[in-house]
Amino acid sequence: MLQGHQTWVFDSKPVISGCAAVGGPFESNSALADDFDRLNEDLWLGQDSFEKAEKKLMEQACEIAIKKAGTKKEDVQFFLSGDLINQITSSSFTARTLGVPYLGIYGACSSSMEGLALASLLVDSKFAKNALAATSSHNAACEKQYRYPTEYGAQKPPTAQWTVTGSGAALVSQEGEGPRVVCATIGRVVDMGLSDPFNMGGAMAPAAVETITAHIRDMRLELSYYDLIATGDLGRVGHEIAVELLTKHGISVPKDKFTDCGILLYKEDQPVFSGGSGCACAAVTTYGHLVNRMKKGELKKVLIIATGALLSPMSYQQKESIPCVAHAVSLEM
């Protein structure tokens, strides 16, 4: 049901009956390594290209999520997925493997929550019993797509971020055990005219703020209602900006509860500059770490705001600025 301008409230509260987080070798040493369902020691995953490796990651995540929910892929009605490779290749090819009716989505790094919101909508409206939402990113494949060759020796500025190698998948069901999806706020595209691809956090922070503001307006609540509010991949730079902007908008930010998946994921001593980024950043942190904490009873109400920079190599070549979007999903246990 629509509430306010842009928030869907799911009356039946669909449940995340199974979810999975898989990662690569760099993630094996991350701060949240224990929360991953599977960590691959090989960046290539035994494939002959990084692009194929990313597809493999997503296949692993989907398989584990379905298995953890105690169901079979034949019982999954729809598969919604998005990623960063040209024309969402990893998603479509995973859909080929799964053989489940497929809807490709694209919201850059906001794809994780876009997928989860849409899957919940399908389940809540009884158009599906089980809907699978997934997303993935691969550090080397993404660098190749958006920036320079991986072995190219260019010095990155401190605002740069580290693309997460991994994939997250969540099976949303009408029945089952797990965190429930309460509502979702779909964000507007915000463009503040920034064009530096090495400062995504700075570009995306206003989109996150826009969606958070819309969420608390539509739901008529305070941010302190949540036990944890996590943005997707703003990194340290974007996170600081977001706190300042929210405060400026007159929204009180509970500092100990407001965090970012890109900051949570990696250890301080890992060379990730401002923090983690990529589709998998919000996905693996949510479907691994945060869901685990909810299941342990440490967190009851969580708001995840996945942020996406909607640039492309083409828009960058045409000297365009970076439009950004953010989608928020509220989970309760």
């Binding site: 060759p149 991986t150 190219y152 010095q155």
Partner: peptide, 29 residues
């Protein structure tokens, strides 16, 4: 090379070694 370059910046980019790196990294990629 990319790790050295992250530390050294222009130090490894300007000499002929930087040029060799651009060609090799693109070929590998």
């Amino acid at each position: 090379y990319d790790y050295i370059a992250q530390w050294a910046g222009a130090g490894t980019a300007v000499p002929v070694t930087g040029f060799a790196n651009t060609v090799t990294s693109a070929a590998l990629e």
